[in-house]
Amino acid sequence: MFITVAGVKKEVKDNLTVAQLVIDEKVETPQYVTVTINDEFVDSGSFESTVLKDGDIVEFLYFMGGGQ
């Protein structure tokens, strides 16, 4: 199946979970990333149980703390 991750369309295996996608995408500090699928937040406690579907649009929103 195909999903779009951070604007890039890619082929992934069926039944991929958000938890596995976060690993595959080498997300830095994965426990603190905000994930949205099709413009809805994924609860941070449910990455394991959230299974992606064909055509899903996934975004990773990162904490960015610097400024000074």
């Binding site: 905000t34 941070s44 990162y62 904490f63 960015m64 703390g65 610097g66 400024g67």
Partner: peptide, 26 residues
């Protein structure tokens, strides 16, 4: 806004017109 290394991010909050920072980052 936040900046680190070679990355930056930005969002604007206007009361009643969309999510706040905590909506996104809890």
């Amino acid at each position: 806004a936040g900046i680190i290394r070679f990355q930056g991010q930005l969002m604007t909050y206007v009361p009643g017109k969309g999510p706040c920072y905590r909506c996104v980052f809890k």
